[in-house]
């Protein structure tokens, strides 16, 4: 009996989101047709998907540019964030010295630096992945610092009672203890990274998802603009899920 309910529940868990998806997109499809909304205002989901396939040769290179910007910037950003967090927490004074400014880093939109970055670096991909790196590193750093600071004192005491070296304590207790927080930061950083990439593209340059959406909207070719929006959504979701998946792989055993 209980078992039956469980399988039922499991099926429902999979089906429910699909139903919601159908309602939203089906409703959109129907409403746009029924109320005769002009094509240059909103594109039907079916048209969007159609365009996506038809023009994939043109769309994909732009999408790929954006993906590259996100990935390169993200890797630089989180590496920087994690290493700076470890550096700052390794020393009491270093942490006290920087912690007031860490807040500045996180609340200031890094996008505002893009015009300056353009001045220094030109119009290339460097500007974008620098912007992505700048956006994804503060959240990773803060989260890692929290993780390092919250390592239970009992664990340090254990290491002390075993006369462990500093290095042993670092690798065998500090790092594994902090890893959940590191991943939280990395997961949140994906959101900052994707936003920063498209934002930087909009300000500088004409290739990538951001400028394409802007370009096609100006020419009232909303269906292509929507195709890019869909791609962007797909990238963000996949990216976020991927990091979450790696996190689960590593932490599932706990």
């Amino acid at each position: 009996m209980v078992k039956q309910e469980n399988t039922l529940y499991r099926i429902a868990k999979v089906i429910a989101p699909i139903i919601v998806f159908l309602i939203v997109f089906g409703g959109l499809e129907w409403a746009i047709g029924h109320y005769d909304v002009p094509r240059w205002l909103i594109s039907k989901p079916s048209d969007t998907v159609q365009v996506l396939f038809d023009k994939f040769g043109e769309i994909w290179p732009n999408v790929w540019v954006t993906i590259k910007e996100i990935l390169i910037g993200y890797v630089i950003g989180i590496s920087l964030g994690i290493s700076m967090a470890l550096l700052f927490t390794s020393n009491r004074f270093a942490e006290k010295a920087v912690s007031p400014y860490v807040v500045f880093l996180i609340v200031t939109p890094q996008i505002i630096l893009v015009p300056l970055l353009m001045l220094w670096m030109g119009f290339g991909i460097e500007v974008k992945f620098t912007a992505v790196a700048l956006s994804s590193f503060p959240i990773t750093m803060i989260s890692t610092m929290t993780g390092v600071k919250n390592v239970s004192a009992h664990r340090y005491e254990l290491m002390k009672s075993l006369r462990a070296t500093k290095l042993q304590t670092f690798f065998k207790v500090l790092i594994p203890s902090a890893i959940p927080n590191v991943f939280t930061g990395m997961r949140l950083a994906t959101i900052f990274a994707t936003t920063a990439a498209v934002g930087a593209e909009l300000i500088s340059g004409n290739i990538g998802i951001g400028p394409q959406i802007s370009y096609y909207t100006e020419f009232m070719q909303v269906d292509i603009a929507f195709a890019y929006v869909y791609m962007m959504m797909l990238i963000s979701v996949l990216f976020y899920t991927l990091i979450g998946f790696i996190e689960n792989m590593i932490l599932k055993r706990r």
Partner: peptide, 10 residues
């Protein structure tokens, strides 16, 4: 031996 088991979760 500690007050709590203090085992490492990973």
């Amino acid at each position: 031996i500690f007050q709590r088991p203090n085992l490492l979760p990973w």
